[in-house]
Design a protein around this nucleic acid. Structure first.
Lengths: 126, 126, 126, 126
DNA sequence: GTGGTCTAGACCACC
DNA sequence: GTGGTCTAGACCACT
């Protein structure tokens, strides 16, 4: 799993890590049960502070995406909390994205098409 | 137009204002050409500083959603910049939302259905 | 002479008027000695305040581009103050324009070429 | 890098800072990758408010001339957005400068000569 | 330490 | 009246 961080982004680094891991799981790049690097190793590899990685992992743990075990370090959850609805945050994000898409003149079928492709795992690089 | 701000959110107030106005335009709650409240009035009404409202308006202006006329204050643009693609930011947001939806166990048809409804203007309250 | 004003521009209206008249003289659209509309008429025509037009005319007068006569109203000067150097303001503007051109990757010959054409009267519309 | 600000100018301070940094990069006074002073330090040094410096930096960031790294503060971009044309604003400025030059009686070859020198980095002090 | 945000008040330019 | 700018402080999030 390769993380690509943008230090000049306005998205905090810990969140970038968290998000990319979530996307990775959803993509299949990371499999349920798979072991994650230790906080120290990951921090060293990326060249950032352990605190930052720690925070990302805590976030992921809290969201139920990973499990941390004192002996084994962290690994991807084998079962995710399922729900019939999106989280409030996700819904708020989606609301804004859709609004901007409409105002940008992207027709509905095209937007739906994009979502459909992305859901199938066809995630754009950006 | 009613704004509902969350002062304890990690989303800055000026951005919340910006976002809600974008959603409002897309919704039809705000119509192209419609006048926005003056910076001072809106600040007073919400109970925040004029600078904060100012910043929200500047952002909107820069994004092409409103125009400010030296004489009349601000109003919604009558023409929006159209593009065939989503902005990078929007795309990145969408990527995360979809990933979370998948991990939450929301099936594709349901997610698409949600997007479809939202695109039609049926925005959930949250 | 047609003025095209942008009320949502950050350039004050009186300055837009002043600038367009300067460009017009340089272009040949306005000839030395030619009469300008009265302040009141111009204001009425454009739909702005007389104060604004007044200020534009005062600016032009002060810069030596027009002459105002109590009886005849204003007209373009027949002789302009000549100098071997640009005004400080113009020089400062030019400095910034050239810097931006360089940083935008516009090569020297191309920039010079553009200036040359523009000097010959080939002014772009914008 | 020394900034010389004119507090009585009609050009806002934040813009003066922004412009001088742009000129500085183009000049070579500031090199790509070079670190800029922190907002606080620069504000202290100049004797103005941090908000004002902040705004200048935001502008520069938005224009792609600097990047701010969450960890290190701000530094000059290493790659600039390149384009084949001048920005609309720059073109409008240039139009006015050239018009004034013509009306001031500055002959074409002299104006071109000035531009040429300035492009080469020979910026006049004013 | 850094940048980002916000406040409460002020002043100015423009129209 | 409007928006635009600036100040002198404060607090917060991130690293």
């Amino acid at each position: 799993m390769l993380l690509s961080l943008d230090f000049s982004s306005d998205v905090p680094i810990y969140l970038q890590i968290r998000n990319q891991i979530v996307v990775g799981i959803s993509n299949g790049t990371l499999s349920p049960g798979e072991k994650l690097p230790t906080i120290r190793n990951l921090a060293l590899e990326i060249g950032i502070n352990t605190m930052t990685v720690n925070r990302a992992y805590q976030q992921l743990k809290q969201d139920g995406y990973i499990i941390t075990d004192r002996r084994n370090g962290a690994c991807i959850s084998k079962e995710f909390y399922t729900s019939t609805t999106l989280s409030e945050k996700a819904l708020a994000s989606l609301k804004i994205v859709i609004s901007e898409a409409k105002l940008n003149g992207i027709p509905k079928y095209e937007f739906i098409n994009l979502c459909s492709k992305m859901y199938e795992g066809n995630m754009p690089e950006v």
